[in-house]
Amino acid sequence: MQAQLQAVLAKAAAELPAVHLRPELEAAKARYVGPNGEFTALMKQMGAVPKEERPAAGRLINEAKGRLQVLLDEALARIAAAELSAQLGPAIDPTLPSPDPGPGTRHPLTLVREEMCRILRKVGFSVADGPEVESEYYCFDALNTPADHPARDEKDTFYLPADARFGNVSKKDPAERYLLRTHTSSVQIRTMLRGEPPIRIVSPGRVYRRDTTDATHSANFHQLECLYVDRNVTVRDLKALLDHIFAALLGKDTRTRFRPHYFGYTEPSFEVDLAATHLPRVNKPWIEIGGCGMVDPSVFAAVGYDPERWTGYAFGMGLERLAMLLYGIDDIRYFYQNDARFLRQFS
């Protein structure tokens, strides 16, 4: 019997490695271990084995059965692996370029704006928004801009025709004209008119000046303004904010300085200079980066806040200018041409 078992195993060991298809394997398996299989037939001989030899014969059969199963499993694994590799083409060349477009890129103005907003959110500012078409009241009157101020001149500010009707931009007075906002400070006014202090907002957005387009001027550009109104807000707090912003943007050792200046809507007012150590292509020690000041009491009066009770500060800067300083861009027009070679450089 041992010889018979050896013979069957040898046959299987010779035959099974040559099997390549699943049906052939199934047929071979039936030939050995199916109801009429050779191995099955040998097992049936067990009944004829004398009683005292049965344990030894059983051991032999079990051993042979195990080895046969190993042969079958190996064949199955080989076939399954061959089936999977049949699903593959030739190996890829990972050095070929992707035919797909991209990757997509964020515009540098978006990158700078989002970075500033991220920095400001960390110190409690939320991002506000408002219309780009504004009325004279929200853009000028409420901000303490006298009626004959040059900024209001048709030479400097874009106006809409007197009969223009804007369905979703409210006016204070039906007689006032619509214009394209010259600063995002109008968002501050609308925000203050909506509710009571404390208010801590940053308003980034598009603004318009009636200006010749050249390397540093653009008919529309972007500003970012901060407004904080609360009890006991001080000049020192304002300086601390500016220091925080630019240290977060450019590194801990970044310095800012205030120069007294004049704006109608703040008192006292300052221009903010940034030490240019971290900026490319700037060859002077300080560079002007924005304007700021303590909210003028007349602005509080215009929005119905009690100037005795509330104090606040405001800060504004141009985003193009900031992006130009940060990235070393020398012409504002690049931002509006959208040359892909420009856009790909910043994301």
Binding site: P103, G104, H107, T110, F158, L180, A219, F335, N338, L343
Partner: peptide, 10 residues
Amino acid sequence: DFHECVNYTL
């Protein structure tokens, strides 16, 4: 995969 652009409003 889009490039974000900024164009003039006017």
